[in-house]
Design a protein around this nucleic acid. Sequence first.
DNA 1: AATTTGATGGAAAACATTTTCCAAAGTCAA
DNA 2: TTGACTTTGGAAAATGTTTTCCATCAAATT
Lengths: 343, 343
Amino acid sequence: MANKEVTIKDVAKLAECSPTTVSRVINNSDHPVSKDTAEKVEAAIEKLNFSPNRIAQGLKSDKSNIIGVIVHDICDSYFAQMVKGIEEFISGHEYIVNIYNTSRSVEKELYAVSMLKANRADAVVFAGGALMDKEYEKKMYSIVEQLKGQGTVLLGVTPHPFDINNISLGNKKAAAIIADYLVENGHRKIAFIDGPEKLYTSYLRREGLKESLLKHDLDLEDELIFPGDFSFEGGRKAALKLLDKIDEITAVVGANDATALGLIWELNNQGIKVPSDISVVGIDDLPEAKYSYPPLTTISLPIHQLGTNIGKYLLESLTSDQITDLINIEMQLIKRKSVKKLG
Amino acid sequence: MANKEVTIKDVAKLAECSPTTVSRVINNSDHPVSKDTAEKVEAAIEKLNFSPNRIAQGLKSDKSNIIGVIVHDICDSYFAQMVKGIEEFISGHEYIVNIYNTSRSVEKELYAVSMLKANRADAVVFAGGALMDKEYEKKMYSIVEQLKGQGTVLLGVTPHPFDINNISLGNKKAAAIIADYLVENGHRKIAFIDGPEKLYTSYLRREGLKESLLKHDLDLEDELIFPGDFSFEGGRKAALKLLDKIDEITAVVGANDATALGLIWELNNQGIKVPSDISVVGIDDLPEAKYSYPPLTTISLPIHQLGTNIGKYLLESLTSDQITDLINIEMQLIKRKSVKKLG
DNA sequence: AATTTGATGGAAAACATTTTCCAAAGTCAA
DNA sequence: TTGACTTTGGAAAATGTTTTCCATCAAATT
């Protein structure tokens, strides 16, 4: 309950001038204001502790200064880093970053988008669900429909190409690098712990692995693809299921670091040695990846940097009308201790 | 660049009525509208895909629907969970949650507050720095000054009592529980890895431990307090420094889980067995705490629940004018495997 | 002296809503 | 029929800015 808001009129009264003039000094407009009055206005602003009402400004300028960020889970290290990257760039430039946590629920995604629309968000970053599912895709269309025409970035969001900046995170490539590395090290029988069912990212990583293995005349056998869900727990459970086939497999790749980490943990727990008994590799390079036993070999996707890139991109496309470059991050194989060279 | 915004006037024109009437059906006001016209309005809204401009609404109602959340680091599991808790409750109720990542920089804290003021935030949750430092405290006063009178929650923010909801997280108590438990298990020579210097939370946890140990006629010796910074890395470094005194110490408590985890990791690395050679305990109960070797005994501070509680509290204090209860979370000692019973 | 120019400032409209106040018309009781 | 009330609806003011247009005055140019 702000005790009667201080307005530009109050400032004008105190500075003995018109609101127009106050506005001019606030926005140091082209229209000249004499040194004298400008100072009086400044003094009045200072004295009244006035700050212009962004809402009123927004109404006039048809800008909300809101940037929406829709993610699956802020607690997930992956998204957290991205959000932080975006925030770093955006918040410092008078924008509001407005986050939504959707837990991969389409309803929540739709809700978030409708909120952002109602609030006339200037831009939105959608790092949402991306399920490969007819029903979902239909709803997705409706989401993207709402988003269209706004300054908007979609993050690897569906298999379908929308005519909006849809950034690929190089998931396939990441998996391919791993495949090559493993084969190079003599591995022939490779298992995969999948990500969440139907998730586009899971698909990409799985297919990337499969395709690349195929190039080496190797097969990613169906019975060596174990279900997972991108979580540590999922990795643990997968380890248990994998126990049967442990003798035939020489390496296993987790769909992400969290599952690879869970995998290693449970393997240790079961008395199976990584990498001497079996090699493990992940994708993401989470901060904790280097602290597993043994430290995890993985692919680094500099997701924080992706965030700052997105922030920068959005800022530029909102402020200057210059068309900016695509956003690119370079991935890298981080060789640690969880892969053994065979033969 | 929204292609000419659809306004309430457009709807009115299509529905052949006045903007007033449209507004009435949107907000289903007390003022009666005939079934007939209401339907025409609904149809027009549907057809034009109209959603009322929240900014204009905000200007009229002097409400922004913005809730600011200022935290040190969104990537920190601790804060991430809290933010998620708040978001869960708040976003679903037509509020915008606007986050700021301050990295414990007073300048960024001040900036965040000024942004929130300019945007007329309806409430703010400040989980900021809280340094025990004269200079900082002065600036802190100015921050709190700006915040006063708004629906605001301060999170264990400084040693000084401000007349604003300032929630204590029970840091002292958490440390006290640990002290009792350790003593109960025969430990007499206890070390502490500190949190960031000058941070109020560090102070509380350290003092809690010290005071509680004193009750058992035990001393937390100054040379057994090692510097740390709440991070895994900090824990590791502390472990290295602790090596000298490893023979005299039987237990070490980390200022938080991250440092305890780093501690355990480096101890393992150095061939020192936890808990047979030395016991370790943390505070926070991070999700990963149960996956260290051995699983970490710690205090659970249900921080996610704290977040939802805060969300609920804010929502109530913004919508109903009923005074709501204080926010409380219960902490709990989680006994896992990192503490050995002596004697 | 008349005109132009430049500097400075204000009045009022506009932005998309909600709200207050008034009006018309129908219904009911007397 | 008159008056009162109810139902329904609109006109206009108001919210805090910015912007467009106009006005004044002094200095400079003709």
